[in-house]
Amino acid sequence: MAVAVDVRLPTVLRPQAGGQSTVTVKGSTIGDVLRELVSEFPGMSGQLLNEDGSLHRFVNVYVNDDDVRYLESLDTPVKEGDEVSLLPAVAGG
């Protein structure tokens, strides 16, 4: 069942969402949430998902701070109250 979740956007994606740092979108999985995000903010197209629908290699997506690549990736379910955050992959060390 689709629920509304808050998605925290990194600085680099905010211009595509009219400057907002958090947006609310609906979905039942992370894949739904990202597709909904792209349809609402077409400027993010190509930054979040590849043409084949897979996750862009330089974006990390977290549900309640856990990276979804190590959960069920785009099939990771989301539930009411979950917080999704997007972060660009950057260097550390």
Partner: peptide, 21 residues
């Protein structure tokens, strides 16, 4: 465990400038 480093790196022009070691 990682810090939310990408949140504060505001010098990125797009996600295509990301980095994976």
């Amino acid at each position: 465990v990682e810090p939310p480093a990408g949140e504060i790196v505001d010098g990125l022009r797009s996600l295509d400038e990301g980095y994976i070691p």
